[in-house]
């Protein structure tokens, strides 16, 4: 029950956090927060092999109704996240981060496509995913499919989720995985990214894998 009560409040706190950082109301102890954020670790010089056996083949349908596998049809690098388009929780942090990363990388000449695989195909259908994701970024590709086809992807990435409750405003609320995977054009996992990183740090990490992709 505690999860139910507090999960529904995340959207409010994330939005409030943004207001604290960017709004014009009185700021609290966070004045100048960006300047006082925790220091980020330095990137090592070399890319090391991925220590996790994660990823694999899947066959799903994108938000336009076209079949799509783990490989990008145009061979672009991919940022992959498992969530749902109306998610008020971690997706509201991860999906905008992915969109910003794709934009920043594109400006630097690196074409990366953000991809979200739904954890609720009833909620995220071919008809509904596109408009919802386009509100975050027109670059987004949404993937859905049959429960069986989706389960193949969940298994490949060790994704687990749990339906917590139905929120009157947001609909179904899930607890679910929260890492972003960076894939090459063929669908091989290059690394993972915590969705809490500042965009510039996440972009710097992704750039390291351009040669490998």
């Amino acid at each position: 029950m505690i999860r139910c009560r507090i999960a529904s409040s995340l959207a409010a706190i994330v939005l409030a956090a943004s207001a604290l950082a960017h709004g014009d109301e009185k700021h609290g102890p966070s004045d100048g927060a960006a300047a006082t954020a925790a220091p980020l670790p330095q990137l090592p010089a070399a890319v090391s092999p991925l220590p996790w056996d994660v990823g694999g083949a899947f066959d799903l349908v994108d938000h336009t109704g076209a079949a799509r596998s783990e490989a990008d049809p145009q061979g672009r690098m991919q940022l992959l996240f498992f969530g749902y388009a109306s998610c008020p929780g971690i997706c509201s942090a991860a999906l905008p981060l992915m969109a910003e990363m794709a934009k920043d990388l594109a400006e630097g000449g690196v074409d990366v496509v953000p991809v979200m695989i739904t954890i609720d195909p009833k909620l995220d259908s071919v008809a509904t995913m596109g408009p919802a994701l386009a509100e975050i970024s027109p670059r987004f590709v949404g993937l859905t499919g049959t429960p069986e086809a989706l389960d193949v992807a969940y298994q490949a990435f060790g994704v687990e989720f749990e339906h917590l409750f139905d929120d009157p405003e947001h609909g179904p609320i899930y607890a679910h995985g929260s890492h972003i995977y960076l894939l090459d054009g063929a669908g091989k996992v290059l690394t993972l990214l915590p969705p809490v990183l500042p965009p510039e740090q996440a972009v710097a990490i992704a750039r390291r894998y351009v040669k490998e992709s």
């Binding site: 994330v14 956090a17 943004s18 604290l20 950082a21 609290g28 102890p29 966070s30 927060a33 960006a34 300047a35 006082t36 954020a37 925790a38 980020l40 942090a93 809490v196 990183l197 500042p198």
Partner: peptide
Amino acid sequence: WCYYSGVMGGP
């Protein structure tokens, strides 16, 4: 989130 972003204040 709050630790890295700094939106709630310093570390």
